[in-house]
Amino acid sequence: MVALLSRLSPVGVQVVLSEASEEPLSVARIPQDLLNRGEHLSFASSGGTVNRESAFRIAASLRNIASQYGFPSESDTQQRGAFDRDASIALAQMEELLSGEALRDDVWACLTTVMAPDVVAWRFPSPSPERFHGGVRNAFQRLWVRGVTLDRGEGNERRWELLGCLKEDAMVQIFERPAIAANAPLARAIAEAWLLVKGRFSKGLRELIFRTAIKMIRLRNEIVDLSALEEDGLQCEVLRVFGNAEEWVEKEL
């Protein structure tokens, strides 16, 4: 049975954010104040069981991970990166998020805006509204997507290795491009290829090569359905593109 999670409409996000702008978002004011006047909160009307606890549990778990990296005190880039990785792993495995509910923007809007705005504010010291609204930039939604997409699968010894090998910029290149993000095998193939080849490149060129390669892949995907390739064929194709990108970037410099 699918656990139905609470949903916050986009208007609801705006209302909460506008009221919160006067004072910092803190854990103290979450439960009663925000939740009880949740006129923009809803649940799916059928198809599963409403579990009002689920969202709290997810929020508590994220808060718990954050506290391992300095929450609620100020954090540095390294701590935030570690939080991102651990939170991705945790979110990807949460049972409540193994359904279509996790594909809904309003579910994530509720988790960030109502359930754990304090964690969002800690992770993004001056968060823009898009961190609260559902979508690819939502503070937690983006972590969940990374987790489920780059998961090498249960039983794999290095199950979450890919999460660690991609820098934030590379993550954005992959996961903020819907055509790539929606195609999990392609996203994973890119990460796997990057893990193989990035050692060849000097640190200064890595970001440029990666960006160039992603663009070439997107152009290629427009005319060749990369998702229709078998796993090996796809991996070869992505590696080939990385080779071309490297060649061009080095020639250019």
Binding site: G100, L103, R104, D105, G135, V145, P178, A179, A181, A182, N183, A184, S227
Partner: peptide, 10 residues
């Protein structure tokens, strides 16, 4: 499936 201009998962 999933909302957005492009589906979230194909």
């Amino acid at each position: 499936t999933g909302s957005g201009t492009m589906p979230r998962r194909i």
